[in-house]
Design a protein around this nucleic acid. Structure first.
Lengths: 218, 218
DNA sequence: CGCTATATTGATTGGTGTCAACGGGAGTGG
DNA sequence: CCACTCCCGTTGACACCAATCAATATAGCG
């Protein structure tokens, strides 16, 4: 790990800035230190699908690949810790532990991707929104109040309506409408456009369509 | 690798049989030797989404996890090569190469899952069907005619209409209708219900909505 | 020869997309 | 300080694609 330290360097990006474009040369791998970034794919005609949300500690880039497979965009101010690919790959060979850790993280990402496939393929717009909110709420709960404080969670949405739409496979209008509907039904409260309060977390979980216990892993 | 041989054993399943249920204890990892299996998730109300298609050489199971996260079902006669989880995990620690190979395979699966997210979230029914057909055709081309023979590919669909629907996030009726439409438009030919011929592969690729060069990795 | 599973096709509904108008806040410049 | 603009978000009207409900082939199989 000390060896990793010796080849690392930091890069920062402003909200909205693109970190790399799909198809670009990418001579480094990196991990998010602070802020939020998104992974997305775009079709020729402009249809966009977000395929990953990068939070602090998440890993970007693939050892053994030259080109970026996805667009990486900072949605907030973003700090990343980068390693040049060559030295990193050497370390992977000499330090088995790194490959094992990376495998674990990749398996987690794969599970998350598959969970998202269920959402994209089978959930209604309302369920999609509820699922996204519960995921963000759960994550914030972990950061802000480890071990409880469930009744009355409040947090800020780190994404625009458009980014949510791209994540959920919806249009931004539908996102806006469903958020309004959840608000009207008392499932969530809004202060401004970005600050969300969830008075009854179980009620929100009911709306996600997931199992009663809300397990992310079915 | 010789050590792997010493702890392996084989299991076979009939078409339609379930290999493991989501939530079941799973004390082995395995790789597909012959046949096709599917990974799928089901919601309480029965909505089902397939999250992976397992072809020969594909790996099933997660080191370090007790319970199966998905339903695994054989869609054809299936042979799997299994390793008890305990010994396999020991081998992973002592033989770094295995973890590195597994990492590579997992990263490939992650890419495939993300490609599928774009399909589920943003493609039309017609594009979904065309994408599935082109993927199956491409795979069969690899098996039957490595390095060419593109004009006039013929193959059998290894999935029922319902399985295709679960894979594509559609209903089986829509799958049937879109296949009929592609047939009427001359993009594909059908002999019986399962045998497909593609007279012009580029024409099919146009219908997928992907880039002109048909790259699976954008 | 039914019986069942698989598949096709039709009629209708409904959820989401599309197009469009409008609101509000932040930043900018006169 | 105020107009102006831009970006983000909301809301409405309408259209359309795919889901739903339903009826009818077709094939395999005991």
């Amino acid at each position: 790990m000390a060896e990793l330290d010796s080849i690392k360097y930091y890069r920062t990006f402003e909200a909205g800035q693109t970190v790399v474009w799909s198809g670009d040369q990418m001579d480094f791998v990196a991990s998010v230190v602070d802020g939020i970034a998104t992974l997305s794919q775009t079709m020729e005609d402009g249809r966009t699908q977000m395929v990953g949300l990068l939070l602090p500690s998440d890993f970007v880039g693939r050892p053994g690949r030259e080109e970026a497979a996805y667009d990486v965009t900072a949605t907030t101010k973003l700090t990343m810790c980068c390693f040049r690919k060559g030295p990193f790959e050497k370390l992977m060979v000499t330090t088995p532990h790194i490959a094992q850790r990376l495998l674990e993280m990749t398996l987690d990402e794969l599970d998350a991707a598959r969970e998202w496939m269920l959402l994209l393929g089978r959930k209604t717009a309302r369920e999609k929104i509820a699922s996204l909110l519960s995921i963000i709420a759960r994550r914030n709960a972990n950061i802000n109040a480890p071990g409880g404080g469930l009744p009355g969670v409040t947090f800020d949405l780190p994404l625009t309506r458009e980014a949510m739409a791209d994540y959920l496979g919806l249009t931004l209008e539908t996102v806006s409408r469903q958020i309004s509907a959840l608000k009207k039904d008392g499932v969530i409260h809004l202060e401004g456009k970005r600050t969300v309060t969830i008075p009854d977390f179980d009620r929100l979980l009911d709306e996600t369509g997931d199992d009663a216990d809300g397990g992310i892993l079915a």
